[in-house]
């Protein structure tokens, strides 16, 4: 088959898979979605508070710290995969957890990837807030906790942006989950690792079909997040 035919065939197969609800592909898709969403949320759970503290506090080496976090946004997933693999490996310091080649390991690896994204975007959003906001909070005697509540509320559009970026990075990466998930059939096989497998097998149209499904999935998640973002923006008037 020529390139164009493979693409057309792949599109047809994607439609077939979606319409027929192929249970194997459905399971793979669900795993991808679940792992990447969990990783995005966990990344935010750690990234937002850490990012907030880094942005709000003054400490020696703050610039370096921010630069490191921003650099980590660009870390190759396969490096994260290798590091997490070595941690979770039987011989590794966290080997006792016995979670290598499980979806949990995939979540951990992707959380390492999404954390700097949420953290970095939180930092830059907080830093670019009007400094008078903080002063107003001081003047109104806001305790630290409430100061955080209000400032983080101010950057919620930025936080949704970080969700979109982090989820995009997670759902599309293959290096990390291949390494720590192992692409085990029916267990840790995700869309991206399945795409690599089909490509290696030379079954290009199936790989294209899964690629299309992945894009559709990402589109739906992003539509939801963008709608939320628009909602907030509209409320700002």
């Amino acid at each position: 088959m020529g390139g164009l035919e493979i693409f057309i065939d792949g599109t047809i197969r994607a439609v077939e898979i979606i319409l027929s609800g192929n249970p194997e592909i459905f399971q793979i898709t669900l795993l991808s979605l679940r792992v990447s969403l969990t990783a995005t949320l966990l990344g935010a759970l750690f990234g937002i508070p850490v990012g907030y503290l880094v942005a709000i506090r003054n400490f020696p080496g703050k610039s370096l710290c921010i630069a490191v976090i921003n650099t980590l946004m660009g870390i190759p997933p396969v490096v994260v995969g290798l590091v997490v693999y070595l941690m979770l490996s039987s011989d590794g310091p966290l080997g006792f957890l016995r979670i290598l080649y499980t979806p949990s390991a995939m979540v951990i690896a992707q959380t390492v990837l999404t954390f700097p994204v949420t953290c970095g975007i939180t930092i830059s959003s907080i830093i670019s807030l009007n400094p008078r906001l903080k002063e107003t909070l001081v003047s109104l005697s806001a305790p630290r906790f409430w100061e955080a509540v209000i400032l983080i509320n101010e950057i919620r559009i930025g936080i949704i942006t970080s969700f979109i970026t982090a989820f995009g990075a997670a759902i599309s990466e293959v290096g990390a989950i291949m390494m720590v998930g192992g692409n085990l059939l029916g267990y840790t096989r995700a869309l991206t690792t399945a795409i690599v497998l089909y490509t290696n097998k030379g079954e290009f149209s199936m790989a294209i079909a899964l690629g299309i499904i992945l894009l559709i999935l990402a589109l739906f998640v992003n539509l939801t997040l963008t709608a939320l973002q628009m909602h907030y923006r509209r409320h700002k008037g």
């Binding site: 792992v35 969990t38 949320l41 979670i99 080649y101 499980t102 949990s104 979540v107 085990l184």
Partner: peptide, 21 residues
């Protein structure tokens, strides 16, 4: 917000936390 994040993340993660591979 963070609580919601945590709850959703746990909800999503729980079915993933099956037995070691």
């Amino acid at each position: 917000g963070l609580l919601v994040l945590a709850v959703i993340a746990t909800g999503l993660a729980l079915p993933l936390m099956n037995t070691p591979s």
